[in-house]
Each structure stands twice: as structure tokens, then as C-alpha cells.
Amino acid sequence: MLQQLANGVFAGSIYALFAIGFTLVFGILRHLNLAHAAIFTGGAFVGIELATRFDVPIWLLFPIVAGAGALAGVLLERTAFRPLSGRDDEHFAGLISSVAFGGLLIALLHARYGTEPQSFPSSYFPNRLYEIAGLRVTLMQLVTLGLALVLMLGLAWLVSKTPLGRAMRAVAENPTAAKVVGVNVTRVTAGTYALSSALGSVAGVLLALNLGQANRGLGASIELIGFAVIILGGLGSLWGAMAAGLILGLAEALTVTYFDSTWRGMVAFALLFAVLVIRPKGLFGHVKVREV
């Protein structure tokens, strides 16, 4: 039972990391970026490529994947969102063009790797097992949880305490007012995408490391769970995404314990349905990014 809960926390930390990047973009720019799952998948493949072909050690893997993700995010903003800004239907059009961007990215992965799953080298990460208070956890799980927490708390700190975060919150509240006081809204927008996509791609490589492999459907498997997390936490709420990611991970683990693993896929949507009926704003719906 406790073991299941622990596993739930590890899975939940990846959900949360995926969701927080998505919700960041929505909270600040009101964009629904449906390419986020593709960026997540891309991060996994970049990680595998680096590990298998260039023998990049794991401590260097994360920053490189994050950097690649950030670049992809900037490109995404530049191609799928910025050309549409100022149009009446910019939000809906952006949603569609981000689907296209994501589809393109997945198609490129398909062209490069085919349908076969790609694996990390078997000895890439020490398969160490620890016993902590009777719980069995792998070193990878600890790294996952630790890194996810550090990144999420780091993001919350950045948004609430730094000049960039202040500018982001200003853009979130009123882009024109932000412009007037001298905020470079174009740069803040690009920066938001870079951060969001860096987090998404690191989440992707973390999931791939835990599974030992990735295929191009990796993002699709987490996408809907991720969206459930975002709505559960309240769209645009960073703390909400963190908490909801963990809650969902735990709920899945409990379902597997008490029912059957076939029910697992339903959990996210049952929770989502319940939240939408009972509290449509989400658990933390009133706490927006700008109040972090």
C-alpha cells in the first residue's frame, strides 16, 4: 500500500512537471499550446540520442535536453503563435497551429526513428535500489522526484521573485500596461515558451529514463493526463498543477491497489469529471500564475 503510494508520487511528479509548463503558458499568455506533448516526446528522444550516440553523462543530459526544449519552444512561439498575434481569432488559431507544430515534430521523429521504441543503453543509469522506511525505491525514482521538485519550486521562485517573473506577471495581467512601462513583451513571450518547453522536455526525458525507452506515442500517453492535471489544479495556477499532478499520481496508485490496473486509465477522467461538476475553477482556480 505505502509502496504503491510512493510509486504514485514518482509518477505524479512527472505529471506535475509536464502540466506546470503547459499551465505557465496559459496563465501568462492565455495560449493553449497543444504542441506541449510533442515537445515532451522530443525531449525524450533528444535524451536517448545524446546517451546512445554521444555518451553524454546523465548530469549533462538534463541541461542539454532543457536547452533543446527551450529552443524548440522559441521556435514554436515564433512560427505557431506570433504570426497570428493581433488577429481576432488569435487564441483559437494558435491552438490549431500548435497542433500542426506538434504533429510536424512527431512526424519528424517518426521519419528519423520509425515506429520502433528507442532505448537508453542498458547500463546508462545505475539500477540501484534503496530501502527507505520499508519502501523500495530506485535511484532513478529519487532523481526524478528531486529534479521535478527543484524545477517546479525554481519556477515558482522565478515567477514570484525575479525581474523576469515580475515582467511575466505584468504581461499576464495587462500586456498594454506592461508595454507602457517598458517591458519587452515580445521577449517575455519568447521566454515564457522557452521555460515552458524546457520543463516539458525534461519531463519527457525523465519519463523515458524511468521506462528505459521511448516511442513517439510517449507524449500522447501523458497528454490527456496532463490536461486533467491542469484543469484539476485550475488553469494557469502553478501551485495547482504541482498539487494536482501529485494527487493524480496517488489516485492512480490507489486505484491499482484497490481495483485493478485496467481501471488506471479511468482515474484521471473520473477525477476531472468530478472536479468539473463540483468545482469548475479547479482546486486552485483562484490562485493564478501572477499570484504565485
Binding site: R166, R169, A170, V181, V183
Partner: peptide, 27 residues
């Protein structure tokens, strides 16, 4: 060249001090 916009356009969710710091952001 700085504008004090019509309707003030202060950022209500930011604190007074944060609004000021935002103003100093560019320079």
C-alpha cells in the same frame, strides 16, 4: 520617453513596490 497611460493602467495584482520596480526595469 515614458507614457502615463489613460486610466492609469497600474498592475493591480502586483504590489505598489513591484509596480515601481517594473517602471525601473528598462533603465
Amino acid at each position: 520617453l515614458v507614457l502615463v497611460p489613460e486610466g492609469r493602467q497600474i498592475l493591480g495584482t502586483l504590489t505598489v513596490a513591484e509596480n515601481l520596480r517594473l517602471g525601473a526595469h528598462r533603465r
